[in-house]
Structure formats: structure tokens, C-alpha cells
Write a protein that binds this DNA or RNA. Structure first.
Lengths: 133, 133
DNA sequence: CTTGATCCTGTAGCGGCTACAGCATGTATA
DNA sequence: TATACATGCTGTAGCCGCTACAGGATCAAG
């Protein structure tokens, strides 16, 4: 008779999404408004947990919340195609690669800067000299 | 007799920092409050331009504004040492490398996901299947 | 004298959370 | 049963580094 009611705390632990983040996702409409029990607390079912885990995995892959919204829409649509999902994934992959190349450029420059300087107590710093014109 | 007054527009063009960003930097105290001419417009000298160029270069290397604040403090200090600058640079380099490795992991996962899917019109998507539990 | 460029202040928004304050409940233990 | 602590709620503000207005003042050129 007494069903276990999954609270925000348990679904947070199970999905790996922080409580405040779950409430935030609800507020921005990324997940639906949850049902409440008679004292006003949110109650969750396994599908909710799955959705949150999905979101967490997508976030770990760097997808934006907007991308995730699209993925969730596609996932819930009957006439979606594989191609749409793949396109979204590849567009995101391209943006990851672009950020990667930015970071690689930074890394190379910083490495060169660092190597130009021997450290120690000298007040004349080649790093500053290179950054100031 | 008539000196050229460098306005925010010209110093923006010369330093490569957007006008709004310059005003923002002033607001947060990253650059000093500028002098004004008699109609209230900010006037800049070559040192200001140099400082803004420095900031832009640091931003291109991914330094945070807080880091840049420290670098500017050190640059303006008489008893700073090379080591302090180098330490800051290397700490930042380490954080760039850490982000780099995050992004590389994302790239590999996204690549694998993308390759698992042939695209086309099928409604069964291996990408979604892998992301949903 | 008019037009258009440039400048000013102030405020709000972006993304994706995170961190409170100030309460109301729920649960476990003495 | 009393109490203590955990957990939940709403609402708001803050983080970073800008960016984008609105609504006005001033400047330079034709």
C-alpha cells in the first residue's frame, strides 16, 4: 500500500545531478514540473531519474542545455530520424574541436612564455616583456 | 598647442578591446578611472593603450581577469620577482592543460558516439541508446 | 544647419549553475 | 513523546566576462 516516494534527494544521488541543479532544470523547463506529494515535495519516478541521468551524461560531453533540449525533443518524437541526432552530435563535436584548437594554441604560447623565463629573484621578467608590446 | 585627445574609440581600435569592454574594465577597477575632458569624455594616453593591449594578450592566453589583475600588480611593483610571474604563468598553464584533457575526453566520446550511428532515416538511434542508460 | 558618428550612464541579459536566507516538514533516537 | 537533525521548500542574489540595449549628449564634416 505504501509506495516509496522518490524525493529530490534520492533522485539526485541516483542521477548524479545536484538538488539545486534539478530545481534549476525544472525552473527553465528542461524537465517537466514535478508532481508533489501532500506536503508539497516533489516526487519522481524512474523515467525522471533516467532523464536526469541522460542530461548529466550530455553535460559531461559538453552539450549545452539548449542542445540537450533538442536531443530530448528528438528522443521523444515519433518521426525523428537518426540523421538529426547525428547532425547535432557532429555539430557539437566540431565546436569541441574548435575549442580544443584554441586551447592548444594557448598551451603552446604559455609553454613558450614559461620556458623563456628562468624564474628566480630577478626583477626583469621575459614573460612580462613579451606581453607588454 | 592643440594636443590630440585619444578617445575610447581610438584606444579601442588600437588595443583591440571593445569599447564596452574597456568601460567594463574601468568599472571593475582593472584599469584606473580615466581622466575626462571638459565634456565628460574619457581621455587616454599611450600607457593606457599599452595596458589594454597587455590585457587583451593575456585574455587571448586564457588568463582570468583576476590573474590579469595580479599580473598588472606584479608588473607595477618594484620588488616583484621573476619567479612570481613564472608561477602564475605555470599555474595557468596547468589549468589550460586540465581543460585540454577534459575536452580531449569529450572529443573521443563524441567521435565514438558519432561513428556508432550511420545516420539516415532510421528512428532507432545508437547515439540515444548509448546516452539513455 | 543638419546629419551621422561617437560618446555618456545605467541597467539587464547571457549560460549554467551555486549559495544563501528563512522557513516547513520528515525521520531517528533517547 | 520530545527532541534533534536531515531534508525539503521558495525566492533571490551572485559568479565570470562580457554584450546589448535605452535614452540621451556632444562632436566633426558637408
Amino acid at each position: 500500500m505504501t509506495e516509496i516516494q522518490h524525493t529530490i534527494g534520492s533522485v539526485s544521488r541516483e542521477s548524479g545531478v545536484h538538488i539545486e541543479t534539478i530545481r534549476y532544470y525544472e525552473r527553465i523547463g528542461l524537465i517537466p514540473r514535478q508532481q508533489r506529494n501532500n506536503s508539497g515535495r516533489r516526487i519522481y519516478d524512474p523515467q525522471d531519474r533516467q532523464r536526469l541521468s541522460f542530461i548529466r551524461r550530455c553535460r559531461e560531453l559538453g552539450f549545452s542545455l539548449d542542445d540537450i533540449r533538442s536531443l530530448l525533443d528528438l528522443a521523444g518524437s515519433n518521426d525523428r530520424t537518426c540523421q538529426e541526432i547525428k547532425d547535432l552530435t557532429e555539430a557539437h563535436l566540431a565546436s569541441v574541436r574548435s575549442r580544443l584548437s584554441d586551447l592548444k594554441r594557448m598551451e603552446a604560447s604559455l609553454k613558450a612564455l614559461s620556458q623563456s623565463c628562468e624564474g628566480g629573484g630577478s626583477p626583469d621578467c621575459p614573460i612580462l616583456a613579451r606581453l607588454f608590446v
